[in-house]
Design a protein around this nucleic acid. Structure first.
Length: 423
RNA sequence: GGUGAGGUGGCUGAGUGGUCGAAAGCACAUCUUUGCUAAAGAUGCGUAGCCUUAACAGCUACCGAGGGUUCGAAUCCCUCCCUCACCGCCA
């Protein structure tokens, strides 16, 4: 969330920056400021009364010790106590409301984030490789998956409904091979520590990373235990250090985690899309970094490079775009999307979204570090997919299909897959 | 799930109603001295909020969480959470 002090000092600047996301936040900002005003005056009054009570209570204690009659004082303090309760309720209510409002305000886009209305205005930063060409009509992954008995959408629907899939045989093996390949790459070559995290999380964790309170309708929730299925490993992994004060010389912290991701995709227009493109459950290897404000910009570049490396090693054509202010995520200050080419789709698929959240998540989860001078400061958090598996699966089988429908995987996967041929 | 023990500052660990934000030790930081791969001494050393400020200072809250009793709660009562041990169950 945003720093209330920044809101107090530069409300117009805040409104202006938020405006670039689309939508008008000025009423919300003004409401926060007026609540803040009320909260502080109630708080000041309460503390003054508490101070009075502490002083008089001590007098009572000492008076009793000396055998004096303290009943008049006791009556007076009782009255003060009643007023403390009263004003305290006001202060607490204002505080709760202020927090609630602050949690619903998105992050400020980074100064370098291109201003734009929608995805159409996202600039393309770079491309790698070229669009592969075929002297036959390339099939899509659904056809290929069915040809080789790798993907069973009917079984997925039978078990859990639409937008769930069952991987079979070489399909299941390829998925597992990719998970291991990605984890090995990031832990061995890129210096991330591997994390195996719970696939469910408490509400506090989701508030910390920003999925709650605003986007609860996108989450699967187990009401009996009040736990949420994680929509991304970002949630458990970033929250690993919630409410901690880290040592500056231990930063950056770099984590890589494989988890499945669960998303309700409520109201998503694209849910009817064919195949693996948009599922309620998909696998992902996520990269998370916790760093200092000074280094977060550079860490975003290297994080993105780490994710790109995946596609380079697999020989898949991709491009990197930057999300403009109108398309950027709720908590993000700056985001690069990596899109891989899928020949069977004839389009690019987003396989990674690398974001710098600045101190936005850190404030929500009270994640700080002690700097060189011993001062506590909020960390900066980043994350990016390295990469999403389902769409990578799509790009791989569609890119490396042969005229007869067989698939010849890149050699680098051989030790993981146990060969390179499917079909 | 059952029974028992326990949750205090970075760590260990005192503290059962009042000058306790909390003894002591360790760790850490700065300084001093002796001197050299160390010892001794002094001082300092939690977090957040409020009010101010150039800054210091001051005030308030926080002893797992939330409620209650009381003029006053780390301390008494209630509920919950977590940790450990044993039992039960189980991949």
């Amino acid at each position: 969330m945003l720093d209330i002090r920044l809101l107090r000092d530069k409300p117009d600047y805040i409104k202006e920056r938020l405006q670039t996301r689309g939508g008008d936040f000025s009423a919300l900002v003004d409401e926060v400021l007026s609540i803040d005003q009320a909260r502080r005056s109630a708080e000041t009054e309460r503390q003054k009364l508490q101070s009075d009570r502490n002083r008089l209570s001590k007098e009572i204690g000492m008076g009793r010790k000396n055998g004096q009659d303290t009943s008049a004082l006791e009556t007076e303090v009782r009255g003060i106590g009643d007023r403390i309760d009263e004003i305290g309720r006001e202060a607490d209510a204002a505080d709760a409301r202020q927090t609630e409002l602050l949690l619903s305000i998105p992050n400020l886009p980074h100064d370098g984030c291109p201003v734009g209305q929608s995805a159409e205005e996202n600039p393309i930063l770079r491309e790698w490789g070229t669009v592969p060409t075929y002297d036959f009509q390339p099939k899509d992954h659904v056809t290929l998956g069915s040809q080789h008995g790798m993907l069973d959408f009917e079984a997925g629907a039978k078990l859990a409904g639409s937008a769930f899939v069952v991987y079979r045989g070489s399909g299941a093996r390829l998925e597992r091979a990719l998970i291991n390949f990605l984890l090995d790459l990031h832990t061995r070559e890129h210096g991330y520590q591997e994390i195996g995290a719970p696939f469910v999380a408490k509400a506090e964790a989701l508030v910390g990373t920003g999925q709650l309170p605003k986007f609860g309708d996108q989450l699967y929730h187990c009401s009996l235990d009040d736990l949420y299925l994680i929509p991304t490993a970002e949630v458990p992994v970033t929250n690993l250090h919630r409410e901690e004060i880290l040592k500056h010389d231990g930063l950056p912290i770099k984590y890589a985690a494989y988890t499945p991701c669960f998303r309700r995709e409520a109201g998503s227009a694209g849910l009817g899309v064919r195949g693996l493109i948009r599922m309620h459950q998909f696998d992902k290897v996520e990269l998370v970094k916790i760093t200092t404000p000074e280094n977060s910009a550079a860490e975003l570049e290297s994080l993105t490079a780490n994710a790109e490396k995946v596609l380079q090693l697999l020989g898949l054509h991709y491009r990197v775009i930057e999300l403009c202010t109108g398309d950027i995520g709720f908590g993000s200050a700056r985001t690069y999307d990596i899109e891989v080419w899928a020949p069977g789709q004839g389009s690019y698929l987003e396989v990674s979204s690398c974001s710098n959240f600045g101190d936005y998540q850190a404030r929500r989860m009270q994640l700080r570090y002690k700097d060189e001078e011993g001062k506590n400061r909020f960390c900066h958090t980043l994350n990016g997919s390295g990469t999403a598996l389902a769409r990578l699966f799509v790009a791989l089988v569609e890119t490396y299909q042969q005229a007869d429908g067989s698939i010849h995987l890149p050699d680098i996967l051989a030790p993981y897959f146990g060969g390179t041929k499917i079909g």
